[in-house]
Write a protein that binds this DNA or RNA. Structure first.
Lengths: 190, 190
DNA sequence: ATCTTCATGTAATAAGTTACATGATTCC
DNA sequence: GGAATCATGTAACTTATTACATGAAGAT
């Protein structure tokens, strides 16, 4: 996978509004944006160090409590420009969207329908939980209505990411259920 | 990304029916299964070497033409068992489905609607082309009907992967168009 | 007190891409 | 004869995960 230095731009992007620490960035990847990109703290700290060297960000220390130091990072002008250029870049091809469940499914020959259905049930569970979590997030931020009216620029990004993730999971679940029907039909012939 | 040794199992899976060369496996990743996993030839040859050492596959030479040697790989019993176990393994969590377009979108603050729409148009183009390609593949293998009746075990995997990919792209396109409507509405207020 | 979360880093390893390198066969 | 495809491999590098390592602050 890995298009060129996506983590770099993900981090620059997360710093676009406020200064953040490595820990903050790690937390962000556990929220909405974690639906579309994520990284472990070890990779984030390493990348931050690199971005500092490249002078795309600068840092200062902030105390939280008596002794605990937070290293805060700010976008430099150079960093802002680099981010801006990247944001307007058009992709010239689509990357493979890796999906281990679908891969596994491709090899299902000789697996009994009952086992296959168990795999589907498991996937359906995971996806349903995720969808519910996403819908809760949506309701919390944008209310219960289908489409909120007043979206300022900040919320818009969040709105797009949440609706994208929700629509992805709904579609996945729909396909899972359709496929399970087909397997159940086959099952009677076994 | 990368759940544990997915490429290993992708390769074992591709060898489940027939013996294949590294080149054949590379080609497979450009076909249907490439919608959900892929790898470059350099990685594939390296992994095949590793799988040989682990005695999950064995190899022999086949001549194609006068001199050109194809190194063919076969699943060993050990390899078959390993694959079978993996196929029945349930995931306990979902990986982040990385999507650079959605990531970029999250950071769209201060980008003019016109530029934003250009990014969407580009994505819409790429996705539409992909969808058409997938639909052609579907028609070629399963005909024009909505749901084929007679699917044997081999075709079923292929069927699932193709319908999954088609449904994913249709859903993506639907969401793109919905989002573009919202942006166009905002645009009048600028 | 002790558990969880906040907070930062490095080391070792695994996975994946790009570039380097070579040669045969087929199609036009 | 030349281009595209068939065919295999290694080297250098980038990206990502897991494990190691430490300590402060807040909650119960």
């Amino acid at each position: 996978m890995a298009a060129r230095r996506v983590l770099k731009y993900a981090i620059l992007g997360l710093l676009r509004k406020d200064d953040k620490s490595g820990y903050d960035i790690t937390s962000d990847f556990k929220q909405a944006i974690g639906q579309f990109w994520s990284a472990k703290h070890s990779q984030i700290y390493t990348e931050l160090k690199k971005l500092l060297e490249e002078e795309l960000i600068s840092s200062y220390i902030e105390l939280s409590g008596e002794k605990l130091e937070k290293k805060m990072y700010t976008l430099t002008e150079k960093g802002k420009e680099d981010l801006h250029t990247w944001l307007l870049t058009q992709d010239d091809h689509l990357e493979t969207e890796k999906d281990v469940f679908a891969l596994r499914l491709y090899f299902l020959k000789d697996i009994p329908s009952a086992d296959l259905l168990a795999l589907f049930e498991n996937q359906l569970n995971l996806r349903t939980n995720k969808l519910n979590m996403l819908k809760e997030q949506y309701a919390y931020h944008f209310g219960e209505e289908n489409r909120p009216v007043d979206l300022d620029a900040d919320d818009l990004g969040h709105y797009f990411v949440l609706t994208k993730a929700i629509s992805r999971e709904e579609n996945y679940i729909f396909w899972l259920m359709e496929s399970m029907d087909i397997i159940r039909q086959r099952q009677y012939g076994e």
